[in-house]
Amino acid sequence: MFVLVEMKDTVRIPPWLFHINFNDAVVETLNKKFANKVVHNVGLCVTLWDIIKLDESFIFPGDGASHTVVHFHFVVFRPFVDEILIGKIKSCCKESVQVTMGFFDDITIPAESLQHPSRFVDKEQLWAWEYQMEEEKHDLYMDIGEEVRFRVSDEIFVDTTPSSPENAAGEEIADTEVKKAPYTIVGTISEPGLGLLSWWNTG
């Protein structure tokens, strides 16, 4: 779920931070830049782990800050495909179930990846697993806030770097696109033992 990733970045330390320990200033700057942010094809950065190496620092003309290339390890949230995780149901719609882990909300379980057979109940705005027990069917609802165990089936990275507001002809493009999450985890619960924890409790 959490991995250590080796990264490199040029750290700019402004003059008003020169009075504090240089390493402390680097740590503060790196955490401010990366913590709780998604790096494309890397994952959700959590916190700086350690500094591997500091290259020589430079001060450029017209800029009183120091610039240093820093090699470091960062703790990153990036579950591997097929990893089993536990989260809580955040919301439901006809297309999917949204799951949160508290610190990360962009987890989706598509309708086709739910336990079979499942149906969306419009009145409740919830999904229900139609569980067959002997000759009766029972609707096991996926209530908001319930803990759910799921398997990671895919991950999706989207480059959210701002693009030019003009097209090739120089015409302005209306900002009508729906903002996409930079990092989405896709899960499945269509296997025995997966789904709401309460479904499988025997006690």
Rank of each mutant, 00 (worst) to 15 (best):
F2H: 08
V5S: 11
D9Q: 11
V11C: 04
R12V: 03
I13G: 00
P15E: 02
N23A: 12
V27C: 13
K32R: 15
K33E: 13
K33F: 07
K33Q: 12
K33I: 08
N36W: 05
K37W: 06
V39E: 14
V39R: 14
H40M: 12
H40S: 09
N41D: 14
N41H: 10
N41A: 11
L44S: 01
V46Y: 15
T47N: 12
T47C: 12
W49A: 13
W49F: 13
W49I: 09
I51R: 10
K53S: 15
E56L: 15
I59P: 03
I59E: 01
F60Y: 04
A65N: 03
S66D: 01
H67W: 05
T68R: 04
V69L: 12
H71R: 15
H73F: 14
F74R: 07
V75C: 12
V75N: 13
V76N: 07
P79K: 06
V81I: 15
I84V: 02
I86K: 06
G87N: 06
K88P: 02
C93P: 05
C93E: 13
S96W: 02
V97D: 01
D106F: 04
A111C: 11
Q115N: 13
H116P: 12
H116T: 14
V121F: 11
V121H: 12
Q125G: 06
Q125S: 11
A128I: 00
W129T: 03
Q132C: 09
E134K: 12
E136D: 12
K137Q: 13
H138F: 13
M142Y: 15
D143H: 14
D143N: 15
G145T: 08
E146V: 11
E147L: 13
E147N: 14
V148P: 04
R149A: 06
S153V: 12
D154Y: 09
F157V: 09
D159K: 06
T160I: 14
T161M: 05
S163N: 10
P165L: 01
P165E: 02
E166W: 01
E166N: 05
E172T: 00
T176V: 02
T176K: 00
E177I: 04
V178N: 09
V178Y: 06
K179E: 07
K180I: 09
K180S: 08
V186H: 04
I189Y: 03
L194P: 02
L194M: 05
G203E: 15
